[in-house]
């Protein structure tokens, strides 16, 4: 995994990489308060990641469910992911925004850019952008 070493002038981002349904996602480490083990099911008040980000017909299997406690609008929300892969600092040159043509489709899903990681393209998430989705889910399952 190619990383950019942390520098004094903060030219990179600390990103937490995790997997869900075999797809690797990234989130800025600042958004995550804590990582915790999660048993078989989601804990009370937490959300399955695939409920927040629509995978469509893509099969999603959680082999080692792990709870990410993320900060959304100053509130701690539990999100169940499959497994944490890494926490590392990546240079800004490895991070790219989505093309304007694609942005209208991916921004509502909380994705704001991609991280070029070796041969893999990792979508970067912003849990703040998923706030409305959490509100929707809470209204459906109070």
């Amino acid at each position: 995994m190619k990383r950019t070493a942390a520098t004094g002038d903060s030219t990179g981002l600390e990103i937490l990489l995790f997997r869900v349904g075999g797809v690797c996602f990234g989130v800025e480490a600042d958004q995550v308060e804590r990582v915790d083990s999660c048993g078989e099911g989601a804990q009370e008040g937490s959300f399955w990641f695939h409920d927040l980000v629509d995978f469509g017909e893509w099969p999603v299997v959680y082999r080692a469910p792990t709870l990410l406690l993320v900060k959304i609008a100053g509130e701690g929300v539990g999100v169940v992911i499959d497994a944490v892969r890494d926490i590392a600092e990546f240079g800004l040159d490895a991070i790219r925004p989505f093309p304007p043509l694609v942005e209208p489709f991916v921004l509502p899903k909380g994705m704001w850019g991609v991280l070029q990681l070796d041969e893999e393209i990792v979508p970067l998430l912003d849990f703040q952008r998923l706030r409305h989705r959490i509100v929707d889910l809470r209204s459906k399952h109070p």
């Binding site: 308060e33 804590r34 990582v35 926490i87």
Partner: peptide, 20 residues
């Protein structure tokens, strides 16, 4: 080991939030 990993991740998160 998994717990240790989680602790390590959490430690890494703490370290990240602590900045330099």
């Amino acid at each position: 080991a998994n717990q240790t990993k989680l602790i390590a991740f959490n430690a890494a998160l703490e370290a990240a939030s602590a900045g330099e």
